[in-house]
């Protein structure tokens, strides 16, 4: 097992003129797990990552890699391997040359550069200029840059953008392997669906504020319970729902009751002598919970 540091974000704030891009954000990213850093475009994810990596100065608060900020590590790129969305490449340089340029500063050999390129499935394009690369190939080269030093912490900004389905499956496997090896892995995405299969924890932000941070299962618990009901007396069910403060919506041959669990509705119907033909819990779709979390004003402040 690799011993990896925890990432700690404490009261992190970034003001761009009148815009508060990141607002008093606090969360932790633990080793041995993949943490999804989620939020719509413009939520402040990239700004947060850039503050974590010392590229952007925080207006207030701090971000630590282990016990100190990124820039105070002696050779930070040996501790954190990062691939940022906007981090780009000189189109006239070959993929291999791109890695070799940074090799001396991170203390790896030229042979290691070729090896990492091979490992991300880019061995065939090593001598090709980056200007000819597809978006997916650029993502892989970015990943190779991040993995150059075999770092204990891996930070990837929207790593699935531009990848083909095969590439997405591949990167999921890779992330799971990193976590199993004990590394600290932080992956941002604006789509929960893209990372749902590979994350252990989620940190959800919107408008620069924290909306939710928990293990993935905790996100599901955020959902309003919804239950599908069929009954010959739907009017009575509607009356019951109104009485209990649940909302109802017609759904096929029955009703979808939001706010009440199957047990609550079943119990209420039994007490009121309403005959039920179907009573089915609807599992909340994580994506819609995520959308709800990031859309509503207020949220967790």
């Amino acid at each position: 097992m690799i011993s990896a540091p925890t990432l700690v974000v404490e009261g992190l704030t970034k003001q761009f003129g009148p815009l508060r891009a990141v607002d008093d954000l606090s969360f932790e990213v633990r080793p041995g797990a993949v943490t999804g850093f989620l939020g719509p475009n413009g939520a402040g994810k990239t700004t947060t990552l850039r503050m974590l990596l010392g590229l952007t100065r925080a207006t207030a608060g701090r971000a630590l890699v282990g016990d100190r900020p990124y820039v105070e590590h002696e050779r930070p790129a040996r501790v954190v391997g990062a691939a940022l969305e906007a981090s780009s490449f000189h189109p006239g340089r070959t993929g291999l040359a791109h890695l070799q340029v940074f090799a001396p500063q991170v203390g790896v050999s030229k042979a290691r550069c070729a090896e990492v390129l091979e490992a991300v499935g880019m061995g065939h394009a090593a001598k090709q200029r980056v200007g000819k690369y597809s978006m997916g190939m650029r993502q892989r080269l970015g990943l190779a840059t991040a993995l150059l030093t075999d770092p204990p912490v891996i930070v990837l900004d929207e790593p699935t953008n531009g990848l083909d389905p095969e590439g997405i499956v591949w990167i999921r496997g890779l992330l799971r392997t990193f976590a199993a090896e004990g590394r600290t892995v932080l992956v941002s995405s604006h789509l929960l669906r893209e990372v749902e299969a590979s994350v252990d924890d989620v940190v959800v932000i919107a408008h620069g504020r924290l909306r939710h941070a928990s293990p993935l299962a905790g996100l599901r618990a955020q959902a309003t319970p919804a239950t599908y009901v069929e009954s010959p007396r739907l009017d009575a069910v509607t009356a019951l729902a109104a009485d209990r403060g649940w909302t109802v919506a017609p759904d096929g041959a029955g009703l979808l009751v939001e706010g009440g669990t199957a047990a609550e509705i079943g119990g209420g119907a039994h007490a009121a002598g309403i005959e039920l033909h179907q009573l089915v819990s609807r599992d909340a779709d994580l994506e819609s919970i995520f959308l709800e979390l990031t859309r509503t004003e207020g949220g967790q402040r």
Partner: peptide
């Protein structure tokens, strides 16, 4: 200026924050 034009400045400063 190519560092800024092609955003390679990001990677440059990740490996050399000073």
């Amino acid at each position: 200026t190519t560092e800024f034009r092609y955003q390679t400045i990001t990677q440059s400063l990740l490996v050399e924050p000073d």
